[in-house]
Amino acid sequence: MSIRVTIWNENVHETTQPDIAAIYPEGIHGAIAEGLSGLLGDEVELRTATLAEPEHGLSEEALQNTDVLLWWGHLAHDQVSDAVVERVHQHVLSGMGILVLHSGHFSKIFKKLMGTTCSLAWRNEAERELVWTVAPSHPIAQGIEQPIIVGQQEMYGEFFDIPAPEELVFISSFAGGEVFRSGVTYTRGRGKVFYFSPGDQEYPVYQQEQIRKVLANAVRWAAPSSTERQIPEVSNPGTGWFERR
């Protein structure tokens, strides 16, 4: 069975800034979809969704048919409906995987999942980023070069106000000397969460083969083992397990 993937992108930069549209003529979501399709082929069933669509393209039906959601946002976090955020949150708790990308650290959904400000240090001076693998046995790191070299990128640095990651997969270093926890995983309810920072809109990061491979690996990792959705609930069994026979 194919992994059902929805790539969500606010798609504001690409439709309002010609210089960004020149880098991503099919949108950031289009570039990510191209990468996943090329690496995963029939292993995935892809769809994209954007902010301007009804319900931001994330209706209940759409989420019911999504195993892994990728989320990219930057300019329009405040324009995302709270009702849609709550809907996505419930699906993650029920088992849907979610990959939060770059400036998505400040999205409503990531802050809700983390329970912190998710603030960080930043500077956009087109600096070189080196993405170092610190968990080489992790499925997301399989086949990834050490380090991934991103020639130009926005700097993200510590302190990054997130809970202690369950798994730290990648750490980035920048030309200015900063370091950043750039690839981290969590579990929320039954859902798997991966945050990956490389991917500013001003640079063609999502066209890099190694970045695309990280995302492909992460889709496989985050995919639930079942399409059944169930939020963990408090239960009060009337008898003990050994007394049920």
Rank of each mutant, 00 (worst) to 15 (best):
H91V: 11
V5N: 00
H105D: 12
H77I: 11
G104W: 01
E10S: 06
E166K: 15
R123Q: 14
I144H: 00
V85E: 11
I211Q: 00
G176M: 03
A33L: 02
G38W: 08
A83D: 14
L93E: 14
S119T: 15
I28L: 07
P204A: 02
V84F: 02
T227K: 10
N217W: 00
V179Q: 12
S137W: 13
P198V: 04
T6L: 05
A141D: 00
Y24D: 01
V12N: 10
S172G: 02
A33P: 01
K111N: 10
G189E: 04
I20C: 03
E125F: 09
L51I: 08
V219T: 05
G27V: 04
I171N: 01
A222I: 07
R244Y: 09
L40Q: 00
V131M: 04
A83F: 12
S173C: 06
L99S: 06
S2V: 13
E158P: 03
L120E: 10
N124E: 08
W71Y: 13
Q90N: 13
I7P: 01
Y203F: 13
P139Y: 04
V184K: 07
R188W: 07
E178L: 14
G30W: 03
P204E: 00
T50V: 14
M96A: 12
F159Q: 14
H138N: 05
K111C: 11
R181W: 10
W8F: 10
E228C: 09
E43C: 06
P163H: 10
M155R: 15
G151A: 11
E166N: 15
E14W: 06
I171H: 03
V214L: 00
A52D: 15
V150P: 00
G38N: 06
T66H: 02
H56C: 03
G189K: 12
I20W: 02
G115W: 03
S226P: 01
E129S: 08
F242K: 14
A22W: 11
H138S: 04
V5A: 00
A62H: 09
Q142P: 02
S226L: 05
K112H: 09
V68A: 02
S81A: 11
G199A: 03
T185P: 08
P139N: 05
R87I: 06
L39V: 06
M96N: 07
A33M: 04
S103L: 13
G199W: 01
T116I: 09
W122K: 15
